[in-house]
């Protein structure tokens, strides 16, 4: 993974079929980047469904959550609607996994992103990272701890 203290590399990806999001648009906010392997994992233990319930807590910490996988913008749209997610899912679809590769979290064998988390501060610098075993939902306690430390500095 990219190391703590690194400036998070810029990228631009589709957040909806007709909208794009640039990382630099989020300067001024802490950013939680959640790379995950694929849309449509089982509901009750689903990482994105869990994070969706935590947006209020993230907002308290001036943090914006973005999910990133290699699924297409259309898959993301359907997934987003089905799970009623209230944060952007970015389509790292073409060229496939470009952003995951940029952040050193691409799994070449599966052709998917690894399950990895980055927390950036409001200046776009990486302040925390975590690589989870792919089958395990990492939860959010690490993210909350990282955000709390940021706000105390």
């Amino acid at each position: 993974m990219l190391s703590i203290g690194t400036k998070a590399p810029e990228f631009e990806l589709n957040s909806t079929p007709d909208q794009k999001l640039k990382l630099s648009e989020l300067l001024g906010k802490n950013v939680i980047m959640a790379f995950y392997p694929a849309d449509w994992s089982p509901v009750c233990s689903d990482q994105m469904a869990l994070y969706n319930e935590m947006l209020k807590l993230f907002t308290k910490h001036n943090a914006q959550l973005i999910g990133i996988s290699v699924d297409s913008k259309w898959s993301h749209l359907a997934f987003n609607q089905s799970r009623k997610l209230h944060f952007p899912l970015l389509a790292d679809f073409e060229p496939k996994g470009k952003v995951a590769k940029l952040y050193n979290v691409y799994d070449e064998v599966e052709g998917e992103s690894m399950r990895a988390l980055y927390v950036l501060d409001d200046k776009g610098v990486i302040r925390w990272n975590y690589l989870s075993p792919v089958g395990i939902n990492p939860g959010a306690d690490g993210i909350l701890d990282a955000l709390e430390k940021l706000n105390h500095q």
């Binding site: 990482q47 807590l57 939902n137 939860g139 959010a140 306690d141 909350l144």
Partner: peptide, 13 residues
């Protein structure tokens, strides 16, 4: 309760 669960590392039910 929910927040304490998240803090405790709960990732699903």
């Amino acid at each position: 309760d929910f927040e304490s669960g998240v803090r405790s590392g709960v990732n699903g039910t």
